[in-house]
Nucleic acid binder design. Sequence first.
DNA 1: CTGAAAGCGCTAACAG
DNA 2: CTGTTAGCGCTTTCAG
Lengths: 330, 330
Amino acid sequence: MENPTIYDVSRLSGVSTATVSRAFSNPEQVREGTRRKVYEAAEVLRYSPNAIARAMARQRTDKIAYLICKKDATLLDEFYAAICEGIMGKAYRSDYQLLISNAEDWRVTVGTAQSKQIEGVILGGNAPAELVTELQSQKVAVVLVNHRLAGLELPCVISDEREGVRQAVTYLLSRGHRRIAMLAGRLQPYVAGARYNAFLEVMAEHGLRVDASGVKMCNPDVEQAAQAAAELLALPDRPTAILGANDVIAAGAIKAARRMGLRLPEDLAVVGFDDSSICTMLEPALTSVHIDCRRMGELCMERLKALLDGEEDIPRVTVVPTELKVRGSA
Amino acid sequence: MENPTIYDVSRLSGVSTATVSRAFSNPEQVREGTRRKVYEAAEVLRYSPNAIARAMARQRTDKIAYLICKKDATLLDEFYAAICEGIMGKAYRSDYQLLISNAEDWRVTVGTAQSKQIEGVILGGNAPAELVTELQSQKVAVVLVNHRLAGLELPCVISDEREGVRQAVTYLLSRGHRRIAMLAGRLQPYVAGARYNAFLEVMAEHGLRVDASGVKMCNPDVEQAAQAAAELLALPDRPTAILGANDVIAAGAIKAARRMGLRLPEDLAVVGFDDSSICTMLEPALTSVHIDCRRMGELCMERLKALLDGEEDIPRVTVVPTELKVRGSA
DNA sequence: CTGAAAGCGCTAACAG
DNA sequence: CTGTTAGCGCTTTCAG
């Protein structure tokens, strides 16, 4: 038979379609014996419920989406991929289906939401406010991750940038460094800004002034970072330690150091941020501030579920702690 | 009004629901003027078609899945993430929705397929034959990527492992290397085997015998690779070049070289495989065999579409060419 | 605990 | 080109 339906099962098992439906969706509402009869018939017919029909009748889909708001790389960005894994794990375990897309296709996602297929979306990274409001106006639940948006009412999950920077700087100070420079990333609005500001703040707390030779902006590209680092290291009073706004930038600093024949960590200490997979690939391995992306993803999913379940008092912002991973580079 | 339906639009625009439906799904079948009326009414009501109902009526969902068959990391594996991006691009451009999941949750995917929500799936990596047959028995279209399964009738997309190895080895030979060793990856059945065999073959073609000191197995983990490389480099007649079965393994070899004070590429040449993002992070940058993962993903989607469209004569195996990217390490 | 029946919103013949 | 109408497969009151 072509695609058995609930009717076929109903007929074969001798109970009504309503009961068959219950047997699958709310087993506890069906008497043991009846239930077994239904399952047996289903087995024989190789029946399994049609989720589309179910969604149609229930007027809900149990589908959510993860939209990575980032230009080029998306899933290729380890950071967002890790968050994704966190979301995925929790989502599947809660019987939610996950749709993933990137900024390039965000219209698609909005469209999907519009067509009532998606009940909630997790926005990764630099999400435009208009996207959030558009989504919310369609009554889809929205959660932000690794970004903050002022003035909008929605939960967001971020890592403790400030504390991460503090951990890195304090560690370097404890190792005797005083001329600590930061290679700050341009481009990533929220995170970059947070890390940069935290750096200035922590340095100030320790009475260290950050002048022009103490901070340099660069794009998050190894070579550009290497270039910027080289300039920093060419200064008369060159820094003895460099904090990269992320691991790629830190890798650039290491490249620059190597090209100049500087030894790590003796001549220069380098600390990265994100604790991505490249850290251990380098020799010496890169000391970096670990961010628990997977956890962030899981928390997103928790917030989204709370939203979908209509819970009250959902935390507006959730901060995930960071941890400095000390390795050979500093 | 709560969620306007096609009836509301029909009423407001004064045409039948069938016409409204056509106006959205097959605009060319509706006269210009009528169409405009429909769109206007829809606009006023803020109507947009309900995809669930549509799927229900059409008996098709336009949904496909990408299942990464790999233990731990999944999307975190750059290789599979890149394939994913390729699939994603093509899928969205063809109005297919993409579901992504990992091996851990493959039951979920099968379940999703069973519930008639998914029409095709792309299996990434080491997919078990039983999964394929199970899926096929549910009449879902299946395509394999970066893997081959003997005896099963389905399209697969792979990269030209053999040619990639040849490119790497030939290059090393051209640079005067004769004692070339391979650090072969254990664990990844298909790909690892292909690369390993290709190595033996190419070396043989050039009259070079590969003895115990010419190849070493190791897990695809930097430190384990470094360890294995160290052993290789400690041999009396140590290799002057090492080909890693992938970039991580190659990075391990570089670590070992550095620890022994060997200079790259003077004392040791290292070539990787995959051309992943770590290549440029290293200094000197890693020479590696580039695999066009994105293209592989796109091709998967093409094959899957062909399958779903019921086309005949779909290529059984599609091979994507590789290209050696020469950088500083060799 | 179980059954009858009315939808859920849209599509696809078929007829005009 | 447009309208009528019968479903698509399941859930959910409401009765019993």
